[in-house]
Amino acid sequence: MENNTKLKAYWKTNLRYLSILLTIWFVVSYGFGILLVDELNTIRLGGFKLGFWFAQQGAIFTFVVLIFVYVRLMNKLDKKYNVDERPSKNDLD
C-alpha cells in the first residue's frame, strides 16, 4: 500500500518534469522557430536574424540540453523514491 502511494507520487513528479520540459521544447522550436519567426527576425544575433537562428541552430542546441536535464532529474528522482536499478534484493515486485 505504502509502495503504491510512493509510486503514484513518483509518477506525478515525472509527469510534472515532462510537461515543463516539453513546454520548453515546444516554445523553442514551434514558437521561436516557426510561429514567431518574423517577429524575432527583426532582432539580430551576430550575422544571423534571431528567428532564422532558432529555426536552423538554436532549437537543436536546446533539444540536446533538454535531454541531459531530463536524465539528471530522473536519475535523482529514481534514487529519491528508491526505484533505481541498483542491483538489490528488495525489488518492488
Binding site: 522557430g33 516557426i34 532564422f52 536552423q56 532549437a59 537543436i60
Partner: peptide
C-alpha cells in the same frame, strides 16, 4: 529558411 522543417523535425523527435 524552409529547410528548418528538416533540421528541427529530424532532431526534435529525440526529445
Amino acid at each position: 529558411y524552409d529547410g528548418a522543417v528538416y533540421l528541427m523535425g529530424w532532431t526534435g523527435g529525440y526529445v
